[in-house]
């Protein structure tokens, strides 16, 4: 699929080229205004692309109006029809397909059971909780056997606890129905935990596409590295023996990048806190500690830099100012293009 969409000043979607595989779930991840929702709406047919084409299973659907695309869409606000019951909403798409009444009834009952709402079929929409409304929206989109399931920030209207359980539920529904799905989110956890592949978008372009693991471990640039997870970034110059970082000396790295200015990435979990009487690594002082039960995240000043370091919590956190040493495996350092030089 390929879409271009010049907006007012800058194009909202500027040459996005994505290929979604049969049966996979692709996440479009990015900050607000990056063009992910516009991209999804173009696929749905709700926004007309200025240039480019949308192809589903070899058929060009760019000129096909929304109601003939046969896709299912779950909206951020759920967009349930308030004047219809739960069953009425779910049956809407089947009504449009002029299914015989018995067949319709069977499929509505079946899908409502799958989302555990069978007992609420006759309820009015206003009587449902947010999570239940979400499930009705999902059932309504899936019951028509869509060629593609599109989800626009499907969980952002719900509270944190519910979000996590529904993540699994949506993913399981998608896997069991084998539907190809594209979903838009600004929540990196959601994208990493639900999707087969993630397309990270920035300013109307795809910054990187890959499996959650690829994106997390080998981000293409500083934007992706900081958007997905937390990162320690060290600016330096790549030479023959490693990256020369002011204050830290030359860090050995493995990279195929040509020599020159680079930014080195070090994930907080990759940094180890050493017992003080050691000569390895770099000496530093605890600047602050944040305790979250299973884990303590320290901010440590060392060699003119501030490092974020994740440690497994074993007892009380170290005091502010405590002397520590930090070290990391050379392989943990990823070399990225220098920041501010795109």
């Amino acid at each position: 699929m390929r879409k271009e969409y010049p907006g007012a000043q800058a194009p909202a979607v500027d040459g996005v080229d994505l290929r979604v595989r049969q049966g996979e779930m692709l996440a479009l991840l990015g900050p607000s205004g990056c063009g992910k929702t516009t991209t999804l709406r173009m696929v749905a047919g709700l926004v007309e692309p200025t240039a480019g084409t949308i192809t589903v299973a070899g058929r060009d659907v760019t000129q096909v109006p929304v109601h003939r695309r046969g896709m299912g869409m779950v909206f951020q606000s759920f967009a349930l029809l308030p004047h219809l019951s739960v069953a009425g909403n779910v049956a809407f798409g089947l009504d449009m397909r002029k299914l015989p009444a018995a067949e319709k009834k069977r499929r509505v009952a079946e899908i409502l059971d799958r989302v555990q709402l069978g007992h609420l079929a006759q309820r009015r929409i206003g009587q449902l909780s947010g999570g239940q409304q979400q499930r009705v929206a999902l059932a309504r989109a899936l019951v028509v056997d869509p060629s593609v399931l599109l989800l626009d920030e499907p969980l952002s209207a719900l509270d944190a606890k519910l979000r996590e359980s529904l993540r699994t539920e949506i993913r399981e529904m998608q896997l069991s129905s084998g539907t190809t799905a594209v979903f838009v989110t600004h929540d990196q956890d959601e994208a990493l935990s639900m999707a087969d592949r993630v397309a990270v978008m920035d300013a109307g372009r795809v910054a990187q596409i890959g499996t959650p693991q690829e994106i997390y471990e080998n981000p293409a640039d500083v934007f992706v590295a900081t958007f997905i997870g937390r990162a320690n970034l060290l600016d330096g110059v790549l030479g023959t023996s490693g990256v020369d970082v002011p204050g830290l000396g030359t860090l050995p790295v493995t990279t195929s990048r040509p020599p020159g200015p680079v930014t080195a990435l070090l994930r907080p979990q990759a940094v180890q806190l050493l017992d003080s009487p050691s000569s390895q690594g770099f000496a530093g002082n605890v600047r602050s500690a944040s305790y979250t039960g299973d884990q303590i995240t320290y901010r440590i000043d060392a060699a003119g830099h501030t490092f974020e370091v994740d440690t497994v919590a074993t007892g009380a956190p170290l005091d502010r100012g405590a002397a520590v040493r930090i070290a990391w495996e050379p392989a943990a350092v990823k070399v990225l293009p220098p920041r501010n030089a795109t």
Binding site: A44, L46, H67, R69, G70, M71, S77, L81, P82, F92
Partner: peptide, 26 residues
């Protein structure tokens, strides 16, 4: 709410059906 009509459209409702089954009742 515009998204209600968009939802109806995504489910296969054409212009006239959308008007009769969504816009008019609402």
């Amino acid at each position: 709410d515009d998204t209600l009509e968009q939802a109806a459209a995504s489910l296969g409702a054409g212009r006239i059906t959308r008007f009769l089954r969504v816009t008019l009742p609402l």
